[in-house]
Design a protein around this nucleic acid. Structure first.
Lengths: 257, 257
DNA sequence: GGTTGCACCTCTCGTAACGTGAGGTCCTAG
DNA sequence: CTAGGACCTCACGTTACGAGAGGTGCAACC
């Protein structure tokens, strides 16, 4: 409430907070990390902000409102005044980040929307079946790396619908045989099991396999997993308890090989 | 590496981590917060996971991959098995959250894109001018609440282009007079200043003012601020040092009134 | 028999950007 | 003289883990 100081261009932390629309805590935080240090202190230790501080605060808030982290804002304000190219670079980087985030969010929206649609279509008889669907989603997810997802996105248009259908039966047969071996107690180290696991792994990781005949079908299967994971899992006829044991069985078979 | 335990359906934390694709630390974290507690412990204190634990882990990971926070996942898994409506409610809420995030991200993309365009068009003679633009962005931002932004979005189509142009000169005149008073050292409590501040505040907050004549112009000015903040600030002829003092001057005038 | 090595254990600190007290000081108006 | 504000400095809480430090149990190898 020191009118003279205010007229002389020196604001208290509360005055600045009200005038700029940030909280007092935020101003103290920015002071603490040296992003917007108070120009000085009063005799009693109160922060006094100068006109230069106020300008800097507004710059920081503007960049913050564009979603930039404080660390980058600090770097930018340290170099930008004499270097407009730095500003362009940082804005471009920020735009890239935002675009990536937008794409990720969009994918999530589609996934959640897909689940909701199936829930509303009452194609889900009981909630246990739905939980099984959830389990399958992350189970199948565990077998794709981010790079493989990239690849799949590129190959999307090269594949037809009938290949996808063929892949479904091919995949179903594979799982069926594996579950059968589990039921019969076949050791994971058995050559027949290991052969099945090899085929499974080629599905998930074998993007550079040179096989010619089954290549198209395998690619379609990979695509199907990526694009229709939840629909696929709902179409699978095996009980959840059995499926839950499958990843560990595969793991043991690999270790034995 | 205990093969017997594994075959009996009890996994060590490392085996489960490899089979499910999460880290050991994550499993310990889920155990710690009770989200996926280990079914038991071995004699030496090592966690042993059962098939039921594995199922629960897959459910958690699936929901997590949809962007849900762990707290909600916990609540959902506590109530969902007997209540499919809860699942629908949670998925709907998640979809809403994701939509809000997508819209926010989209707005940021447009803002950053706009700044980049102006930087590339070389309409920015020096970087200092650009910094001033940044300051103006958050300065004008401070005078709009989120609700007012909502309002503006609804009124967008009711206003014409010529009203916007008229509003610009009207706003410029207002700022010009305020800066003049600041220069002359007119006390913030002066009636003339307070009258100007009243007009300023009506711009930002007076959405329910019943004035008939200037209403259209005022609405256009508010819209202009919202939609073209950065272009507006670049068009304003006043030096940044002066503008920086304006919010505090307004604040003191309000306190005096 | 000692030692290496691996998988596991329990703390505990760190992350981004502040929010939210707790407890103390300073200053002014009544 | 005292009540009320505005200010101060710690310091913990938030999310979902990552990254160590330092210790234990158990197998194989020299």
């Amino acid at each position: 409430m020191n009118g003279k100081d205010a007229i002389a261009g020196r604001w208290s932390i509360g005055e600045l907070a009200r005038a700029s629309g940030v909280t007092v805590r935020t101003l103290r935080h920015y002071d603490e990390i040296g992003l917007v240090p108070a120009g000085g202190r009063s005799a009693s230790g109160h922060r006094r902000y100068t006109a230069a501080d106020v300008r800097r605060l507004y710059q920081v808030r503007a960049l913050r409102s564009l979603g930039m982290p404080l660390g980058e804002i600090r770097e930018l304000l340290a170099s930008a005044p004499e270097d407009p190219a730095a500003m362009r670079a940082v804005l471009t980087a920020q735009l890239r980040r935002l675009t990536v985030r937008a794409e990720r969010t969009q994918r999530l929206i589609e996934q959640v929307g897909g689940l909701l649609r199936r829930l509303d279509e009452a194609s889900m008889p009981d909630s246990d079946q739905f939980m099984t669907t959830l389990e399958m989603i992350s189970m199948l997810d565990a077998y794709f790396t981010p790079e493989q997802r990239e690849e799949l996105a590129h190959r999307r248009d090269e594949l037809g619908a009938e290949a996808v259908e063929q892949a479904r039966t091919w995949f179903a047969e594979l799982v069926e045989q594996l579950l059968g071996h589990m039921d019969e107690g076949t050791p994971a180290g058995d050559p027949r099991v290991r052969d099945l696991v090899r085929r499974w792994d080629e599905l998930g990781a074998g993007f550079h396999a040179e096989g010619a005949s089954g290549e198209r079908t395998a690619a379609a299967a990979r695509l199907m997993w990526q694009e229709h994971r939840d629909r696929l899992s709902a179409a699978l006829p095996w009980p959840a308890e059995k499926m839950a044991g499958l990843p560990a069985y595969l793991e043991r078979a690999r270790a034995a090989g």
